[in-house]
Amino acid sequence: MTMDARALIVCAAMSVAAGLVGCFAVMRRMTLAADAFSHVALPGIGLALVLRLNPLLGALAALLAGAVLIWAIEGKTKLSTEAITGVVFSVALAIGSLTATGEELIDALFGTPGSVTTAETLFGLVAGLAVACFIFKARDRLVVSLVSNEVAIASGIGVRSLDLAFLVAFAVTVALGMRYLGVLLMGSLIIIPATVAKRLATSIDAMFAIAIGAALASTLLGSWIAVLTHRPSGPVIVAVAGGLFFLSLLKS
């Protein structure tokens, strides 16, 4: 069997969420911050391993705490999300490497192919749906606030709470990819398909569609190639996504 139904569900949920969240991460010019942000999961994973909890729980908790921390620092200072994430990420990486070592940590970083438990499937499904619902519900507010913060405020949009909600959606999306891609590579699945979509699309709906399509194609095709070639799935998926990006460069 190449892929069981559960893995397929987790893959699909992860791809849809990553594609959608990625669109706004790319348009808000927080791509590098986005990539670095996924590393915030590390101390949580380490701590969960020490406490013998599911690493996914630890990762999710750390990511959510990271989102709130970044948001709070952003509100207090004039620093950019990029700079703050840079600081939070390196500190998290340092703490993470202190709290945990070993094979399980490597798994969390690069993903673990193989069978997926019912709980993991359920989390993937619920989290993926929640993120997709949030993006579709908040898309208009997100669009206006990325065009101009002031215009958004004057239109009655609660910009600060919207920022927090987006960071939380981002954190959940990274956690979503931990099982299959690992947190290190999940950043790539968020950024690359959305970048492809930004190159090809000329409207927001088209961007959503292309980003989701590219993310799904990368994960499904990547997983299949990984099984055929007996390679870990995460790196193959990211390689496929990278291939799509280079293809998108053909468009003048």
Binding site: M27, R139, D140, R141, V143, V144, L146, V147, S148, E150, V151, I153, A154, S155, A197, K198, R199, A201, T202, S203, I204, D205, A206, M207
Partner: peptide
Amino acid sequence: YVPQKLDIERDLPITGRDLLRAK
């Protein structure tokens, strides 16, 4: 509110229709 000249990336995939629909 109509802001001072905004710097919009040329290839941002947001159309005029997207913006008005959002409002």
